[in-house]
Amino acid sequence: MIRAAQMEEYNNNGKMHPKKFSLVLLIVGMTMLFLGLTSAFLVREAEGNWLHFSLPPQFVGSTVAVVISSLSMYFAYYSAKKDNLKSVTIGMAVTLVAGLSFVYFQYLGFNDMADRGIYFSPANGSAGGLVSGSFVIMFIALHLLHLLGGIIFVTVVLVKSLMLKVHKKDTLSISMCNTYWHFVGVLWIYLYLFLNFAPQL
């Protein structure tokens, strides 16, 4: 088939694999989405009439979970390159658990904001009906959507590793998973720092 022949021709030319390169480009696009939205946040905040509030403390737990998941992801990737198949599975499993913990901490954070009267829309009785809560919740939800894509990816690679299909001769899937997972991790840290410090800019 064309796909196999095509990849055979291009895999060995020393360049990044086209699939991984496409993923990098997709990440560039996602980065632009968040850059655009965080710029919008700054522009709108500068206009005043803005409710300042602190982020839920549970988000510290989210941040710790995302850092742990990134480390375990890298451990799994490194193990795959060394052909240490058992470690690959362990690393991927830890990543999955840490990723799910992240989702749980986000859920707790949403509840905390709701308790303080910060909702997505004023129709729900948001504090003062102001837009700052909408922005923060939108950022977190949008990031969570990207992370859920990552969790599916991690699950697929975990299953492959259980079937012993992730090893040093086939690292493409775990390499792409590694890249994407680090991206959603870095994206969260960026959002967390941005939402903590941007209001004071």
Binding site: G29, M32, L33, G36, L37, A40, F120, V131, F135
Partner: peptide
Amino acid sequence: LLSFPVLLGGGLLLMFDRLAGTSF
């Protein structure tokens, strides 16, 4: 690649204003 995601972001906010009652 660099500009369409920004419009997507703008469109999403507009969609939220229309359908979810936000006031972006």
